[in-house]
Nucleic acid binder design. Sequence first.
DNA 1: TGCGTCACGGTTGAG
DNA 2: TGCTCAACCGTGACG
Length: 352
Amino acid sequence: IEQTYGEVNQLGGVFVNGRPLPNAIRLRIVELAQLGIRPCDISRQLRVSHGCVSKILARYNETGSILPGAIGGSKPRVTTPNVVKHIRDYKQGDPGIFAWEIRDRLLADGVCDKYNVPSVSSISRILRNKIGNLSQPNPYEATKQPPPQPTLPYNHIYQYPYPNPMSPTGTKMGNHPGVPVSAGHVSIPRSWPSAHSVSNILGIRTFMEQTGALSGTEGSAYSPKMEDWAGVNRTGFPATQAVNGIDKAVMEADIKYPQPTPSLSTVGSFLPACAYPSSNQHGVYGGPGGGYLTPGHPWPAQGSPLAHHGPGVTVHGGDLATAMAFKHPSREGKRAGSHGLGKGVQLPGGSH
DNA sequence: TGCGTCACGGTTGAG
DNA sequence: TGCTCAACCGTGACG
């Protein structure tokens, strides 16, 4: 029995505190903005706080990406065995060498670059702790041989954390057929690649439209790596069964992210009912994308991956009561102050 | 009224 | 295995 939960913001939208909005919503925000819709209107239509809309648009303008940043994890160590080895060599070659000189040499020799060169204090610590007695073997070499760590910049090592619904391995960082992935993970630099730009996404959408690959998977249509979509064929996905080795839980994530079924023309009737699994968030808001649009808007009601509400999307609980029932009981009342205000559903159009 | 910014409480994942 | 820490998140309030 998996506990899922969501919270309702002042606009009546559903969100999970601490987790990014689903890519579908993020994409919609950017697309609406590109259509000239004001951020405040986007906020109201999508029921996302204007601060969030502002943030996403600002990020998009800055990076060209709609995707959230990499969550969690630690910065990679800069004192890799290779660096330690070089420091050790420098120290052996010149016992009187200063830490700052070592630092300069690491840069000069290309062992490190300016992004991952250890600080002087780190070098000092290495000298003290690891190379204090040069007669002792290097602990890295004497004990175990950790896997070589490439001295890559921080960006490169960070991974996009979302599980990939198309992963044949069912792992969060799954590989894609035909997409070479080394070391079992896919890296997306924080300087977001243009592959995530809306134009590219739209291009991919065209592809998806043509193939019908997005049928019924509106909210889950966003692969962690958009550029991998070309290798994706989601046609005929069973709703809850493992497909192509995809972990069932991953698949179910799509289903556990129901968005209330807002009718297209009734933003005002939007009733949030969403339950995010704690493990991931892709595929949230399974409702028809067109539901975010005001009547008469030129937005294509069909043809958008976000607008197609296919059979693969099971919308659970179409009312607020259901959404609230998914909440963590322990979280109720826990968030006093401003966040507690989000509990109350405010009718659309209400001013803040 | 719209929007940029920030504090806050939360999640995440490498170390 | 559990903890720590630093990254990120969206909300809501403020100006």
